[in-house]
Amino acid sequence: MTTFKLIINGKTLKGEITIEAVDAAEAEKIFKQYANDNGIDGEWTYDDATKTDTVTE
């Protein structure tokens, strides 16, 4: 398992969460579901060097 981080730069929700996932694709799926569940819809970027997804509304 690898640690992945999501940075949220939303209009109403800001912060970050960290998860353990098998790979980047699994982490992205989990993060996008989390964002959807919390009403966050924005531009996504991924930095492989830091294993960090960022969503900005």
Rank of each mutant, 00 (worst) to 15 (best):
M1N: 05
M1W: 12
M1G: 05
T2D: 03
T2Y: 14
T3C: 15
F4D: 13
F4S: 10
K5I: 13
K5Q: 02
K5M: 07
K5F: 13
L6R: 00
L6D: 04
L6H: 01
L6V: 06
I7Y: 05
I7C: 13
I7M: 03
I7A: 00
I7T: 01
I8C: 12
I8E: 01
I8V: 06
I8M: 03
I8F: 08
I8L: 07
N9F: 11
N9H: 08
N9C: 15
N9M: 11
G10M: 13
G10K: 02
G10P: 01
G10E: 01
G10V: 11
G10W: 13
K11P: 08
K11Y: 12
K11T: 10
K11Q: 10
K11E: 09
T12G: 07
L13D: 04
L13N: 05
K14H: 08
K14Q: 10
K14C: 15
K14F: 10
K14A: 05
K14V: 10
K14N: 05
K14R: 10
G15T: 14
G15I: 15
G15W: 15
E16D: 06
E16T: 13
E16K: 05
E16M: 13
E16N: 04
E16W: 14
I17W: 12
I17L: 11
T18P: 00
T18M: 08
T18Q: 06
T18I: 13
T18G: 00
T18K: 03
T18R: 07
I19R: 01
I19L: 06
E20T: 11
E20F: 14
E20Q: 13
A21D: 01
A21E: 02
A21R: 02
A21C: 15
A21S: 02
A21M: 04
V22E: 04
V22R: 13
V22A: 09
V22M: 12
V22N: 07
D23M: 02
D23W: 14
D23Q: 02
D23E: 02
D23N: 12
A24W: 15
A24T: 03
A24C: 12
A24R: 15
A24S: 04
A25R: 12
A25S: 10
A25L: 10
E26S: 11
E26W: 08
A27I: 05
A27M: 04
A27R: 01
A27N: 00
A27S: 00
E28C: 15
E28V: 10
E28N: 08
E28Y: 14
E28A: 12
E28K: 14
K29M: 09
K29T: 05
I30Q: 02
I30R: 03
I30F: 13
I30Y: 13
I30G: 00
I30K: 06
I30V: 07
I30L: 06
I30H: 02
I30S: 02
I30T: 03
F31P: 00
F31A: 01
F31I: 02
K32P: 01
K32A: 08
K32T: 06
Q33P: 00
Q33A: 09
Q33G: 02
Q33V: 05
Q33D: 05
Q33N: 04
Y34V: 02
Y34W: 15
Y34A: 01
Y34H: 02
Y34N: 00
Y34I: 11
A35N: 03
N36T: 12
D37S: 07
D37G: 06
D37Y: 09
D37L: 09
N38M: 15
N38A: 10
G39M: 06
G39L: 06
G39N: 09
I40C: 13
I40Q: 01
I40W: 07
D41R: 11
D41M: 12
D41K: 11
G42H: 02
G42T: 04
G42N: 04
E43T: 11
E43N: 09
E43V: 12
W44I: 03
W44L: 02
W44M: 01
T45V: 11
T45F: 12
T45E: 09
Y46N: 03
Y46P: 02
Y46H: 10
D47H: 06
D47P: 04
D47G: 05
D47N: 09
D47E: 09
D48P: 13
D48G: 06
A49R: 09
A49D: 09
A49N: 08
A49L: 12
A49P: 05
T50G: 07
K51T: 06
T52V: 06
T52S: 04
T52I: 08
T52D: 04
T52W: 06
T52K: 06
T52P: 03
D53A: 15
D53F: 15
D53P: 09
T54G: 04
T54P: 04
T54S: 04
T54V: 08
V55Q: 05
V55N: 05
V55C: 11
V55T: 04
V55S: 08
V55M: 08
V55R: 07
V55D: 05
E57T: 08
E57P: 07
E57H: 08
E57W: 03
